[in-house]
Nucleic acid binder design. Structure first.
Lengths: 143, 143
DNA sequence: AGGGATTGGTTCGAGGCTCGAAGTATCTGG
DNA sequence: CCAGATACTTCGAGCCTCGAACCAATCCCT
């Protein structure tokens, strides 16, 4: 039966997520971050073009007011900076500060050290990422 | 490098969790449930002995006051019943009502229909559950 | 048996998270 | 130029989570 296997997959994914969150809680607090702010910080890749608020809200599955609230905290904390997008001045793009880059890297580092996924070997991990990717991709037809 | 693969695994796990939560939001609302109450309801398996508050709190990675708060909502909603454990009357065990069983089943059914994991085939799903299980098990030495 | 320490739950109050409604600034199409 | 749409913010309400304080039952040690 696929059904019980599917339920097991959802349950295991949930459990892993909760355990990871639980384990990094203390590290986040050390950096003055909450789960919500840490998640938002993680979502800003310093190697990509700074995303707009709208883009970020989609990425985080939250709405605009919520993201404004969270971004205000990160701004107050000096980890990100908002600036108007010259191409469309309604839009505001969010960029990491130097401090933001450092804290983000530290949070990711700590997470990778503490997450239960770290238990898996290299091959298993690759296999796992492949499977999770298949679940996520809507239609991975070749470009 | 394991590092980037590990990061991808954590990110995919997070993304899958968020997407699943996002998609079942409306169904939960139809049943008068919030994310927190739904999660708690899910955690009570009707085929197992009714868990104590302490057991449930551990299962949900929350503390006692929080669980009391959530359980009050489920109780008010008529989905669970609390009763003293005869073996240790400090402890209170939580059992699903008939209605609770029905709603729980409906929520799980809807989740399995909507989760991105449903995209995967039977073999992939089994493989995935196996990998996630390996990450979770602290030490799966044979009994 | 008696009494202090421990444990399981609850209540209460504070603070964080999320959302809908309303408002401002900017862009777009006619 | 103006009406409508879009990106964002502010505000207020409600939900979620936690620590502190409290109660009741159990345990342990003498």
């Amino acid at each position: 039966m696929t059904r019980s296997t599917l339920e097991a997959a959802v349950a295991a994914n949930h459990e892993l997520f909760m355990q990871t969150g639980d384990r990094i809680e203390a590290v986040l607090a050390e950096h003055g971050l909450t789960p919500a702010t840490a998640q938002a910080l993680w979502a800003i890749d310093p190697d990509q073009a700074p995303p707009s608020m709208k883009t970020l809200a989609g990425r985080l599955y939250c709405n605009a007011p919520n993201l404004s609230f969270v971004m205000n905290q990160l701004t107050d904390r000096g980890l990100v900076e908002r600036s108007a997008d010259p191409a469309d001045r309604r839009s505001r793009v969010v960029a990491l500060t130097d401090d933001g880059r450092r804290v983000r890297a530290a949070v990711i580092e700590a997470t990778l050290a503490l997450t239960p996924f770290a238990r898996l070997g290299d091959d298993e991990l690759r296999q796992l990422v492949d499977l999770l990717g298949k679940a996520l991709d809507p239609a991975p037809e070749g470009a």
